[in-house]
Amino acid sequence: MSVSEKRLWAAWSRFLTGLVGAILIGFLVPILVVVAVSFQSKSYLSFPPNDFSLRWYQQFIGNDDYRSAILNSMMIGASAAALATVAGISTALAVVRAGAPGSAIVSALSIAPAVLPQIVLAIGLFPISVWLGLQGTLWAVILAHAVIGLPFPFITVCGALTSYSNRIEIASMTLGANAFQTFRLITFPMIRPAVIAGFIFAFAASLDELVLALFLSSPSTRTLPLLLWEQLNFQVTPEIAAAASVILAVTSLLILAATLLPRLDKDN
């Protein structure tokens, strides 16, 4: 390869890297646009915004619908993620460690909710929710979201368990610890990052989910995405942009905390 040819390939490589960098930064544009339009004063969306006001934020703060929807989403998300994480850990232990029979089928079923269109689950779950008397309660959405959250902790914990040999646990047992002590003192501390990641993913899945909430909630258990969706279908105002910006800010902080916390933990 001649020198100029070499230089040509290097230039092409730099061009490709630059292009991808531009695409990745471009990915942030839609998010930034939402934030930008939230600070305008007009009651219709215009871009670029030509004035600055916190009017829509004031309206957002004073809006009880948002307050209760955020509260509902947090409660549903936390409860659903907790249920999904418990089920995910225990299933992963059964499949990876205990060599329980039927592990292939159980694994497939535990991953299935991640790929199954939510509308399919929603119309099947609706009659059951009615029949069990859960319809319109928080529990209906919590349990549905626990199902769609399950794949995340299941996959992350399976990954963590396969990343080290079960010798560690056998060693613990030869040293006198029973199965429960071994889980508490050895297995759990070792899979903890995966458990936290799985919980966060399940929580995020619940926070993002609309279709199941649409079918299973009542006005009093309305979730945040559902409220946003209803507002978008009703009338598009910058208040939605303000709400979305606040949500974005809070989620970003949560993600930042989730990525930074394990590092602080390690330093101590």
Partner: peptide, 15 residues
């Protein structure tokens, strides 16, 4: 069960 046998074990990769 393993944990009642009061046996010490050293594993190949130390565990």
């Amino acid at each position: 069960p393993i944990y009642r046998r009061n046996i010490g074990m050293v594993f190949q990769n130390y565990a």
